[in-house]
């Protein structure tokens, strides 16, 4: 009979319409901004700079102004100017820091390549998307102060990734400390071998690290 296809279709529409009053599968609208969807951990929007501590964000930036992200950024939205002086980083090494670090979020396409190429885990992807501003020419330009957020924030928004970064950085710090200790030990050994009956000096690289040093 002609019209059976239409009737079947109307049955589907009716099922969806009536179902939308009680079945969450059929009514899928989120009433933003009163309700918010839970974003997955991997969600990324614009980047932010990681500071080790929240008390001194500018002083504890992990970024050493190597400018790799600036070169690799496809739309070239990052501007970095190196500082003239140096500051100690988390490992105690003197590093330059960025005097200017600006990202133009009207150009940034959130592709995450800057995060992938950063050798220092200094730039990570943020999840804030409510960045609308009324100033068209400068309001979307985020400078160092606006970009820097503490490491605790990074742990909160990307817990899995932050745990992995933390483990890697801790391993790096431990390796640096072991190397420093191994380099310092030969200086102590010649002083210890005085001309008296003494057992020969133990091999210098053998000193085991005391537990709990890596922190």
């Amino acid at each position: 009979m002609i019209g059976t296809g239409l009737l079947k279709g109307l049955a589907v529409t009716a099922r969806n319409f009536l179902g939308s009053f009680h079945d969450p599968r059929r009514f899928v609208t989120t009433q933003y901004p009163e309700e918010r969807t839970v974003l997955p951990e991997a969600y990324r929007n614009f980047p932010f700079l990681v500071s080790e501590s929240a008390d001194d964000p500018m002083g504890t930036l992990r970024c050493v102004a190597c400018q790799i992200c600036e070169k690799e950024c496809p739309p070239q939205c990052i501007l970095i100017e190196k500082s003239a002086d140096k500051k100690p980083d988390a490992n105690g090494k003197m590093q330059i820091y960025p005097a200017v670090f600006a990202i133009d979020t009207s150009v940034c396409m959130s592709c995450q390549i800057c995060v992938e190429v950063c050798p220092f885990d200094a730039i990570k992807m943020d999840q804030v998307f409510e960045l609308a501003t009324t100033n068209r020419f400068g309001g979307l330009l985020l400078d160092r102060e606006a970009l820097a957020k503490p490491d605790s924030y990074f742990h909160r928004i990307h817990p899995t990734e932050a745990a992995e970064v933390e483990a890697r950085l801790a391993a790096g710090r431990k390796a640096a400390q072991d190397k420093a200790r191994a380099a310092a030990a030969p200086k102590a050994a010649p002083a210890a071998s005085a001309p008296s009956v003494q057992p020969p000096a133990a091999p210098v690289a053998e000193a085991p690290p005391p537990p709990g040093t890596a922190a």
Partner: peptide, 10 residues
């Protein structure tokens, strides 16, 4: 066109 993060050719 004015671009705030101008570097290089821009």
């Amino acid at each position: 066109e004015w671009e705030p993060t101008a570097h290089g050719d821009v």
